[in-house]
């Protein structure tokens, strides 16, 4: 597989380490919403189709990416910096 790194261009997926569903970005707050942690940590949509997922460029520039990939065909529809996605979802400090 080749991952279209937003900064570095296409890179072999072997340079990356996979984490999983990009929903892991949406971590609840431990003090105010502890009841949400089970679903956050354990439940997944696991779609057969388009999936947004986290890849870490471990053998590269150490960027975490959100890659949009089809889990049936493996086609990759895009990749962005996870930091940007996180900010877009309202995460900050």
């Amino acid at each position: 597989m080749l991952i279209p790194h937003p900064l570095l261009g296409p890179r072999d997926a072997q340079e990356f380490t996979y984490l999983g569903d990009a929903a892991l970005i949406d971590r609840p707050d431990g003090l105010t919403e502890p009841e949400k942690f089970h679903d956050y940590a354990y439940l997944r949509d696991n779609p057969a189709g388009v999936h947004k997922e986290l890849w870490f460029h471990e053998q590269g520039d150490r960027s975490w990416l959100v890659v949009t990939r089809n889990t049936v065909t493996h086609e990759i529809l895009g990749a962005v910096l996870a930091r940007d996605t996180a900010r877009g979802r309202g995460r900050s400090k």
């Binding site: 892991l24 870490f56 975490w64 930091r83 900010r87 995460r91």
Partner: peptide, 18 residues
């Protein structure tokens, strides 16, 4: 290696503006 990866995850994905 896993700890470093985890810390980068926390830094980039959870608290990107720290």
């Amino acid at each position: 290696v896993p700890v470093f990866r985890h810390l980068e995850f926390c830094r980039q994905c959870l608290w990107p503006d720290l």
